[in-house]
């Protein structure tokens, strides 16, 4: 591995996760049990504080078809706005991991995960970020994982002051990051469809 003149290395290039990403990261879904414990199915354990929510949706490609082999990772703050990390803003409660994985149903492309609703968290330069979930999306045909965010449509005032949403120049594109509350029984459920391309293309971030 060659360092440049200043001694820096270059980041390893990305390659698509391919159609069989489940073998490595969700082998049960690929059709076999190998690990005692698969990772990513417990974003917020029973002890985690806050409102229990379910987020569901689809990833839709440029032809309007659901993407049925996608994997999404979630990274979020707890109900107090802290991330489970030494630089995350404080100690989180036992059982709150804040990270998870979700894959789609191979037949329908539907996905859903359960978690707790995050609290507002600090932004840069003294700002406050509205409650949101960070997502990273990989699949066959996606050459470099896509970063996006889920905000909650019922957090109107917080969203209006959010430094990331308001930074998006095209106001009509900001709504692509809003999950809508679905009426019904059971836990609070939000709908969030991700459009990779075309009408209503979701905002993706270069972070």
């Amino acid at each position: 591995m060659m360092a440049d003149d200043l001694g820096y290395l270059k980041e390893t290039a990305s390659q698509t996760a391919g159609p069989y990403v489940h073998i490595g990261l969700a082998p049960g879904a690929a059709g076999f049990d190998i690990y005692d414990c698969e990772l990513g199915w417990d974003i917020a354990g029973p002890n985690a504080a806050g409102e229990r929510i379910r987020v569901q949706g689809r990833v839709i490609d440029g032809t309007g078809s659901p993407v049925k082999d996608v994997m999404i990772e979630v990274w979020q703050a707890n109900a107090a706005g802290q991330f489970a990390h030494p630089d995350g803003g404080g100690e989180v409660e036992d059982g709150f991991r804040g990270w998870g994985r979700v894959i789609t149903d191979f037949q329908t492309g539907d996905w859903a995960f359960d978690t707790v609703k995050p609290g507002p968290c600090p932004g840069r330069n003294g700002a406050t970020q509205a409650p949101h979930l960070n997502l990273w999306i990989v699949a066959r045909g996606i050459n470099l994982g896509l970063h996006t965010r889920i905000y909650f449509a019922d957090e109107g005032a917080a969203n209006a002051a959010d430094p990331v949403l308001t930074m998006i120049e095209w106001e009509n594109r900001r709504t692509t990051l809003l999950a809508e509350r679905v009426e019904g029984d059971g836990p609070a459920t939000y709908r969030f469809d991700i459009r990779l391309q075309g009408d209503g293309e979701t905002v993706f971030f270069d972070i």
Partner: peptide, 15 residues
């Protein structure tokens, strides 16, 4: 069909 057509929006890194 799986590539965004709009450019990625640059985001200052936060927590």
């Amino acid at each position: 069909a799986r590539s965004p057509r709009f450019s990625l929006i640059s985001l200052d890194q936060g927590v």
